[in-house]
């Protein structure tokens, strides 16, 4: 019985995640290799300082890469990163614009900052510091 198509990728990811956690007993593996989406969103949060929530993160991502991501994708990544501990979700004071509910802000944790450092290092070593690639004929 194969799982339905739609759930295949997340199931696979889930298995990998479980395996990783088991391997490293929920401690951080040596190098945190973030996925591209995670990297982009973490950077956006970093750039937004204290003003990172759904709307602003989406705008920031657009500024950075030129594409508007779906809210769903953003929330999904945020949720996963919160579970991994890279990001903290903080409720603000209840606002009247939101009908008495609070806005949820996202902030980098120390783990998140470490992850960004790691991925920066990885990027640097991968791209050798260059922003353009030379291809041979």
């Amino acid at each position: 019985m194969s799982p339905p198509r739609i759930a295949w990728k997340p199931f696979y990811n889930f298995c990998v995640y479980t395996y990783e956690c088991k391997l490293h007993r929920n401690r951080r593996p040596h190098m945190i290799i973030l996925t591209r989406a995670e990297e982009i969103i973490l950077l956006a949060i970093h750039k937004l300082k204290d003003n990172a929530y759904g709307v602003t993160i989406r705008e920031q991502v657009y500024e950075d890469i030129g594409v508007y991501w779906a809210f769903g994708a953003i929330y999904k990544t945020l949720k996963k990163m919160k579970a991994k501990g890279y990001v903290a979700k903080i409720a603000s004071e209840p606002l009247s614009e939101r009908g008495g509910r609070s806005k949820y802000y996202y902030r980098l944790t120390s783990d998140g900052r470490e992850a960004l450092q790691d991925i920066a290092r990885v990027n640097a070593s991968l791209w050798d510091g260059s922003t353009r690639l030379e291809f041979e004929e």
Binding site: I6, A7, K9, P10, F11, N13, F14, A70, F71, G72, A73, Y75, K76, K79, K80, A83
Partner: peptide, 20 residues
Amino acid sequence: FRVLESLPGLISDIIYWRFA
């Protein structure tokens, strides 16, 4: 548009977390 484009992501998210 925003809601519809988010649906696949949300659904896969839900499934993932159910497994978790």
